[in-house]
């Protein structure tokens, strides 16, 4: 969910950005990071931890922890909380099977 009105801040929604999560089409806005766009769309689980398979979501949102790592356009371990969202990005939920694509 997005904040529509705020007593102090003004949020100007940028233009719509289309992207894909595990093949499904999603919408974010210019200015979003991958994680903020996903969270606003109700996606809270971003990855699964490698040994214990625990669900993980956004934790620090400043690129310090490893909670929000996902596969973005084939590149694994991308910190989605600090990576700006771009048109057509293909995002995949990351689990232990991280593969290297060229």
């Amino acid at each position: 969910m997005r904040i529509e009105q705020h007593p102090i801040l003004e949020f100007e929604k940028g233009e719509k950005i289309k992207f894909y999560l595990d093949g499904k089409e999603m919408i974010g806005f210019k200015g979003d990071t991958i994680a903020s766009a996903l969270y606003a769309s109700g996606i809270y689980k971003l990855s699964e931890s490698k040994k214990l398979r625990r669900p993980r979501g956004i934790f620090c949102a400043v690129g310090h922890c490893s909670s929000c790592l996902m596969i973005v356009d084939g590149i694994p371990n991308v910190r989605t909380c600090t990576t700006p969202l771009k048109e057509g990005m293909k995002i995949e939920t990351q689990n232990q099977e991280v593969v290297l694509n060229e």
Partner: peptide, 23 residues
Amino acid sequence: NDLPGVFGAGAVQTLMNLYGVLP
């Protein structure tokens, strides 16, 4: 403590004040 929805305060601030997303 690692469940999605457990945030650092900075993350909550970032989501709502920077990206306008309701945490």
